[in-house]
Design a protein around this nucleic acid. Structure first.
Lengths: 83, 83
DNA sequence: ACACGTTATGATCTAAAGGTCATATTGAGT
DNA sequence: ACTCAATATGACCTTTAGATCATAACGTGT
């Protein structure tokens, strides 16, 4: 699982997939991350403007990690999907 | 260059290093990204609460990319630094 | 020490994120 | 079609990010 994230929509997909992969409902994710279910819904649907801290909370709860690297000039290096 | 980002402080470091690596001043980055110099200063110093859109703007201007992956259980996979 | 460029801080204002609650809509399962 | 869980939406309110301007602090060369 590897998601390139350039937009809020990308992010939403990544979060939703990770959540589904762990068989969690939004409500469950909400209580384990401290982010409201309603907010998770919005984020998963790409309605931008999310704060980083919120992302970090979600990412931590979902056992994901965020990396920042130089843009890979070469081949599209094993990415699963870019929305 | 590969930065694991878990906190705003991590992010600040990643941004600053990328900017320095491209020999840009905050002001230059500001005008090419549309994000104010003052805001960049705050972000680089890890004063959290940044919005994702702002990050995307900076990342795009600096030719970086953000990826979200599962947390690597194994070895710490070539990361340069984690603050 | 001085001057200049760079970065940090501080104030004000406005737009908007997200906590919070209520409700509507969707989707499975039977 | 019905029910219940899961999501989405909508409204309200508080808090705060970031635009914007001014200015302070810091660095570096000379």
């Amino acid at each position: 699982m590897k998601h390139l994230v350039r937009t809020s929509k990308n992010l939403g997909h990544a979060i939703r997939e990770a959540r589904k992969a762990k068989n969690l409902t939004q409500k469950e994710l909400a209580s384990m991350s401290g982010v409201w279910q309603e907010t998770i819904s919005k984020i998963e649907n790409g309605s931008g403007g999310t704060k980083l801290e919120t992302l970090f909370d979600l990412v931590a709860a979902l056992d994901l990690e965020i990396t920042v690297t130089e843009r890979s000039k070469g081949a599209s290096d094993g990415l699963e999907d870019i929305f």
